[in-house]
Design a protein around this nucleic acid. Structure first.
Lengths: 237, 237
DNA sequence: ACCTGAACACCGTTCAAGT
DNA sequence: ACCTGAACACCGTTCAAGT
């Protein structure tokens, strides 16, 4: 039974120094986190065009303008949604971390996978705001590379190269991976223009769909270059 | 005398763009190309949020709905604008082409530069539609790599890896390169959270601004990997 | 074939006000 | 501190109609 909170209001005992406990009322409290979560749901369900402040408020059971108490504007909502989708728990057995390269690959594959799970995140991508989860990923990437022996002077280049590659791969994949028949149609169009585009027509560029494999291969090339001498992993005991 | 036009829309807010310059008083032809050109101007001047169908029509001196005869919808306008900005004349002395690697680097640096000249293009990026200029670039890239000796089975991976890298670098650069003080502020914030992000705080990741150098370096690593043995250019005669 | 205004169903955000 | 509705200044696109 949904006992209305309004009734229990009078029952409020003047409990002494109540810790900052939040009351769970049926109209939810409306916090930044809660707004972000609802935005992600909406974006997942309706895509990037489906998120409006009104619809978001609707979903949260609040008035539209209530959102603006917690959030600066719609851009802010996008920033929150993007970052909230990029939490990272770290590579497996991080404590032991016997192979830095394996760790880096795990981090970057997870990054890409997290975004592809929410394809709208790719189209949000050129954003100035770096949320805590994104920063944490950059930090972890940087510290791992650093521990692996990348010199301080090369560290930023290494981080940005890898970041760029991951972002580009994600954006591309999000663009072209959507629909098989779309891609087939595009390749068809390409073939019909065969004279103009012989090479990519022949190679069936738009039909090739080993995206994961291609991602991994390019990543390996980058890593080969960024840490030329294959450092032996930290020797154990 | 452009009586009809100036008369009808005299209620104007004070600061409009380009008051008299392009009022040629000729009836504008209104073609796809013309619309694309106007869209690019508008996007350059006002950014991605500044392009609306109404404003575009205004700039073209036509009614809003006239656009829809030439264009399917607003997405279509974005596609046209993006592609129109990506024309490529080819590498220098293409006919002689003594060094494939030099050519590829030129193509990709030009690609990135073209987009950075119109920063809105980066935020348009995850698009399904490949216009003729984009396809021409892909074709030229593919054929150059192929001539350089990249095996057919590796060609798509090579093309996509390079494309991904370029797109990612462009998107990132467009995001963070905008304002110096923004970046300084962000790095400042990072420093204040120094405990949480020691590595990228120390490396001053957000302040590093040798974007061009970093781009070139990562690109070289990729090219090293994609064409491992430095093939001598096709012997002539 | 090409262009048009009016109308519809939306937007994000400001503001003054309510608790 | 937190939430609200009304109002403003916009949107993209459908439609029926005009040349």
């Amino acid at each position: 039974m949904a006992v209305k909170r309004s009734g229990s209001r009078s029952r409020r005992s003047p409990a002494r120094l109540q810790p900052v406990q939040e009351r769970r009322s049926d109209p939810p409290p409306l916090s930044k986190e809660y707004i972000a979560a609802a935005a992600v749901e909406l974006l997942d369900a309706e895509g990037i065009g489906g998120l409006s402040m009104r619809r978001l408020a609707d979903r949260l059971g609040s008035g539209v303008m209530s959102l603006y108490w917690h959030v600066h504007n719609k851009e802010d909502v996008f920033d929150l949604a993007l970052d909230s989708v990029l939490e990272y728990r770290g590579p497996p057995h991080a404590a032991e971390s016997r192979d830095w390269r394996e760790d880096v690959v795990h981090m970057l594959e997870d990054w890409r996978a997290s975004m592809l799970r929410h394809p709208w995140s790719a189209s949000l991508l050129p954003r100035r705001a770096l949320g805590p989860n994104i920063l944490a990923r950059l930090e972890l990437l940087g510290s791992t590379l650093s521990r692996a022996g990348v010199a301080d002077t090369d560290l930023n280049v290494a981080i940005w190269s890898l970041w760029n590659y991951v972002m580009g791969a994600t954006v591309t994949r999000a663009s072209f991976g959507l629909s098989d028949e779309d891609r087939a149609a595009a390749q068809q169009r390409l073939a019909s223009l065969g004279a103009r585009y012989p090479t990519i027509g022949r190679s069936r560029l738009l039909l090739d769909d080993d995206w994961d494999g291609a991602f991994r291969k390019g990543l390996d090339f980058l890593l080969d270059g960024l840490a030329p001498q294959p450092l032996t992993p930290r020797r154990r005991g």
